[in-house]
């Protein structure tokens, strides 16, 4: 591991100032479970590491029935699985977090880290995007909000600019039911071969709004609008569901890697989307 400077700012302003001074050449560490792996494997050689764990502004966790959920970047996966607020209002987030890694890693790893690491297979991204979550990004000079669906730009890449931090995620009040299905060989300790989040809002026996978001099948989490459209306005018969699942599979072109062949990922998209929709009924 290369040597680096280490900072532990106590406020958001302090953190952003260091980030600005370092002109982007600082790695932000929250849980550290992704960053340390990359540093140990010489993928990242940071000149400075910025420990943001003491920044209180990143620790939001509140719910308002109009605005929805504000959940700070430092919220750990463990917090997500334990928080009564999340378990009650957004159970899909608690269950998605609970499938990730291990109890020990979940105690360290954070929501912000999972998103900013921008892995195509990040388990929290599909359900959050399905919930129409918005990312709040801050820098010394500005604060902006961007739909999480637009946050990711490629594997390991996001819209975060130099000097900018992910402060929190805002999730609108839950509409309909959301499910996240993860396909992996083991029960825990696995990266998803495919992840599929589905949100279905029904009214009068018809699907009013649908979200289908896939993980691990594209460079970024993939929202399948054509699949969603095939559901909206329809009565969700098994034929309609099958059709949406098929469209979802056809609309992605995953890669083959050590975890799975591309054809298998496509097949799993179809199965998971179908089962995901069924799980919301």
């Amino acid at each position: 591991m290369n040597s680096f400077d280490h900072f532990t700012p106590a406020t958001l302003t302090e953190a952003l100032s260091i980030l600005a001074e370092r002109n982007g050449n600082a790695s932000i560490i929250a849980g550290g479970t992704d960053l340390l792996l990359r540093v140990k494997n010489h993928i990242v050689k940071p000149a400075a590491v910025l420990n943001v764990k003491r920044v209180p502004e990143l620790r939001a966790l509140s719910f308002d029935s109009n605005e929805g959920l504000r959940v700070g970047a430092l919220t750990t996966l463990r917090d997500l699985t334990r928080s009564p607020l999340i378990r009650d209002c957004y159970p899909v987030l608690a269950s998605a977090a609970g499938l990730m890694a291990s109890e020990q890693i979940r105690s360290l790893a954070t929501l912000g880290g999972n998103l900013c690491n921008a892995s195509p297979s990040a388990d929290l991204a599909p359900p959050l995007i399905a919930l129409d979550a918005v990312a709040c990004l801050v820098s010394l000079s500005s604060e902006r909000q961007i739909p999480l669906a637009e946050f990711f730009t490629g594997p390991g890449r996001s819209v975060l600019q130099k000097g900018e931090l992910l402060k929190e995620i805002i999730v609108p009040p839950p509409q309909g039911k959301t499910a996240y299905l993860k396909h992996s060989p083991r029960a825990f300790m696995d990266i998803a071969i495919v992840g599929a989040a589905v949100r279905i809002q029904q009214q009068g026996g018809k699907c009013q709004q649908a979200r289908i978001v896939l993980g691990a099948v594209a460079p970024t989490p993939l929202r399948v609008r054509s699949g969603e459209e095939s559901l909206e306005g329809q009565t969700l018969t098994s034929e309609v569901i099958r059709q949406a699942a098929k469209i979802s599979a056809e609309s992605c072109s995953p890669i083959s890697d050590v975890r799975s062949a591309a054809w298998y990922r496509k097949r799993m998209v179809e199965v998971l989307v179908r089962r995901g929709i069924e799980a919301t009924l």
Partner: peptide, 11 residues
């Protein structure tokens, strides 16, 4: 040990 998969207690 992530992609070389040993059975865990849960499996």
């Amino acid at each position: 040990l992530l992609d070389y998969r040993l059975f865990t207690s849960a499996d």
